[in-house]
Amino acid sequence: MIGLTHYLIVAAALFCIGAYGVVVKKNAIAVMMGLEFMLNAININLVAFNHFLHPNLVLGQVFAMFIVGIAAAEVALGLAIILSLYRQRHSIAVDEMDILKW
């Protein structure tokens, strides 16, 4: 029988894959992909908790919808900044961003 723990472990794995992508990728767009995986993992967590433990209210699903909205805004703003930077320096490698030292 598939229970809550199965979903939580899948979500944890997705979160770690996303975090790995954020840490090791050079390309700023690839970093944003990793961030999307992290947010998706959180949504799976919320929906699974909602389904298995707290089905009387839809709080988890509502929270997940808020996160989807935030994710869309984040990608729009992030890509706008990436495009503007690309026009100026013709590269979006995160580790070449060294005018300001990290």
Binding site: V22, S84, L85, L100
Partner: peptide, 9 residues
């Protein structure tokens, strides 16, 4: 721009 990118990521 660089500061903005670092901040949002």
């Amino acid at each position: 721009g660089e500061a903005g990118l670092k901040y949002i990521l």
